[in-house]
Design a protein around this nucleic acid. Structure first.
Lengths: 211, 211
DNA sequence: CTTGACGGTGAACGCGCGAGCACCTAAACA
DNA sequence: TGTTTAGGTGCTCGCGCGTTCACCGTCAAG
């Protein structure tokens, strides 16, 4: 946060303010008007600067598409206090809802400190209520809550993946030289699970079980 | 949520999904492509329906500006704020611990909401870093953190108990007519563990595992 | 004195993207 | 039977909005 000029901080602040208040990113013209600029190019300069310095990223040419890189703009001191995160929990996956997690199906919330869960604040995370026995050999049982972080999977990770329109938990196997595939961790299940198109929603980082 | 058709729920779900994953609302063309429509007007119909039914609102003519009316789409009971508790974690337990709070052996802290952990605020709780394999058959592995609440054990509970000056995790068995005893949940361990004097420190309520 | 970063004006360009119109199909009424 | 509602296709129109180019200041560093 230190390498930003005052003006740039103001612009970054306005981006976040607008998002908080309207649920939408502002357009160049809206930023221009807010700061009293007389040219959208003044905005362009600041946006470019923020982009260059890594505080935001965007999809060039597309309207109102920003993304704040949180890890940079919170210059939180080395934490002594526990950094707690509130996470939505999704349960049953709507039948036929192929996009995966049905957002309206939020069945609860969970709060845990990031260290215990092994997740990062900068990534989006969500909880998933486990159904079925496909991962019992990995110590994940029916009824457990797994905390999934949206990040690219690596070989050996347990991932939440989309199979036939349902979200399931599987081991992600990606050996060099062969296409990646998914594997259930249950001796009674077919071990291999070849998938035409692999849609990985996130990587399981932690399990919380209610005894 | 009941007055929405399946398709409308899917569209609403995609709006939220896209927002979660990209931090941006999708454009009509992106929605069209995602659902395989061949006309943006199909999108228009659904957006209009969602708007008419009050689930979203938008600023007409402006790109990627939606607003979700949350109060409508979650028909879950009004969620109370999560009650979060900070808990000390002990590694190896010092002999003589049961007298009270011996903080010297504290190796960390954990924060979690009481509901996820299944504990009560009124009781004292602590975390325990599991060492050894004595409970693998109960799905508790070496390295897991169990959350223990200080309360009287009942038959079948997993308890933290003092054996030979060390705290271990065991199943508490208390059948009528015979003295209570402890039992390890590992096929390779002796199943019975008769103890002269039973010192139970608390009942395990939850497990947190870092994958 | 020059160079570069920073902050800005003004105008023009061109695609992204919401909006509208015409028309189609299937299911649910009544 | 006609009418309505949900869910589409295909096309066009026109504004919103990001982008670029030319050019202007100020200030600190080399």
């Amino acid at each position: 946060m230190k390498d930003l000029t005052v003006r740039q901080q103001e612009v970054l602040g306005y981006l976040q303010l607008h998002m908080r208040e309207h649920g939408t990113w502002p357009s160049f013209r809206e930023i221009e008007q807010h700061f009293g600029f007389r040219s959208t190019n003044a905005v362009m300069g600041h946006i470019r600067a923020l982009e260059r310095k890594g505080y935001i990223s965007r999809i060039p040419g597309q309207a109102r598409t920003y993304r704040i890189n949180l890890d940079l703009n919170d210059d939180s001191p080395p934490r002594e206090a526990l950094d707690v995160l509130e996470i939505p929990i999704y349960g049953h996956i709507a039948a036929g809802y192929p996009d995966g997690v049905e957002t309206s199906g939020e069945i609860g919330r969970l709060q845990i400190d990031v260290e215990s869960a092994g997740i990062r604040r900068t990534r989006r995370s969500f909880g998933l209520k486990v159904r079925g026995e496909s991962m019992v050999d990995a110590g994940i049982f029916d009824g457990d809550t797994v905390i999934v972080e949206q990040s690219p999977p690596r070989d050996g990770d347990i991932v939440a993946a989309l199979i036939d329109g349902e979200t399931t938990l599987k081991r992600f196997v990606n050996k060099p030289g062969e296409p990646p595939y998914l594997k259930a961790e249950n001796r009674r299940y077919p071990t291999l699970h070849p998938v035409a198109e692999l849609v990985v929603q996130g990587v399981a980082k932690a399990v919380v079980r209610h005894l």
